[in-house]
Nucleic acid binder design. Structure first.
Lengths: 207, 207
DNA sequence: ATCGGTACATACAGACAGTATGTAAATCGA
DNA sequence: TCGATTTACATACTGTCTGTATGTACCGAT
């Protein structure tokens, strides 16, 4: 294992080492300040290996960001119940905030990715993951309780933007614990009041 | 005027030229790809002038981003009525989306600024402008109709994030006009349902 | 065994940000 | 009003970093 014999093993091992090292350096220094030389040193390969595996520095970052997106989605899916759409949205959002407790996730995925890859590519990466599950949640809510004029796509992106900013706000707050509690409460209220038709959230619990 | 005599006039003229040129190049190419050489060429000065006025490229971008933020806030304030808090929020949000019709605003302020300056500095720049007026709107609403558990600060940033993403989503949509209409409607509903206590938005109009 | 291709390593070239130094014009004190 | 000094730049240079071109060792098929 330490010295992989086959080509495929070498390939996979080097690629994995590059991705892991790149993730660390990108997270610590940001994309722009991250030197490829430092990444390959940490991965114990040379820049030749990097450019053999990835077209350029941007492609390496793209791969790292895609990994991060997939991991976020996995954490969300793992915690999200399937029976209650409202609960799924609230719990899923909490899981997203949990995932964003990792500074690497915030730096790479929330801060740098839109600038480095462009908003379009960023959303493309996210499409099969975060936005998809969010859209499913929104759809489930709007099917159960249609709100006149509230369209699925705009609502999905509105909430996605709100959640992203929520994660950054919590992380940057002086008292992170308190901020998180406040944000959890406000987020739950936002979701409930947006989707739930009855006057009081309590009324819905009895339905 | 064409050849300013006093030092103060030269200074101001050069600085203005640099800011204008930088804004164009930053918007067209993005911060990373924007070469200082091209900026100064467009401003008809040399790189010496740039580094005389700004500590580094980042400081130049900071100044440009601050200008953009101020202009956005001015457009919002100009259109926002002071009497009705709910209307002020909805109309103000529309004005924000209008300001973001300019690709330079989106690229510089929404996409690049958080990555180049960091989220903290980004919000610091925005603090006396966008976030301030938004916070005032949120405060006015919550004072008039308190919602149990809905705190001012988290709500302000939730909405800020939603609005930013809304602007980018509209800009990137295939049919921008339709997207804008859908987003306007969903945004208004989000705001109304979040803040207005009565069951139906119509009921509020009679209050 | 060997021959071809894969997976790297090394060396090099171009671009670019930042710095150090030079200079002309404006301002200020006598 | 005239010399000294500071201001507002311009020019030249250096170090760093990305991407590329070329070289090489090793795996794999025949």
């Amino acid at each position: 294992m330490s010295r992989p014999r086959t080509q495929a093993e070498r390939l996979a091992a080097t690629r994995a080492a590059l991705l892991k090292a790149a993730r660390t350096i990108f997270a610590e220094q940001g994309y722009a300040a991250a030197a490829t030389e430092e990444i390959v040193r940490r991965a114990k390969v040379t820049r030749g290996a990097l450019y053999h595996h990835f077209e350029d520095k941007r492609a390496l970052f793209d791969a790292v960001a895609s990994d991060v997106a997939r991991e976020i989605a996995e954490k969300i899916d793992a915690e999200t119940p399937m029976d209650d759409p409202l609960k799924a949205l609230v719990v899923g959002t909490g899981a997203f905030l949990d995932a964003c407790l990792d500074p690497a996730v915030r730096r790479i995925y929330l801060i740098d990715a839109p600038a480095v890859l462009g908003w379009h590519r960023w959303r493309e990466i996210d499409a099969p993951h975060g936005v998809r599950s969010l859209r499913e949640g929104v759809t489930a809510m709007l099917v159960a309780h249609p709100v006149d004029g509230l369209a699925i796509e705009p609502t999905t992106f509105l909430l996605a933007g709100a959640f992203n900013e929520a994660a950054l706000w919590v992380a940057e707050a002086k008292d992170e614990k308190t901020a998180r509690r406040e944000m959890d409460r406000s987020l739950a209220l936002l979701i409930e009041r947006l989707f739930v038709p009855s006057r009081s959230p309590r009324a819905r619990a009895r339905a």
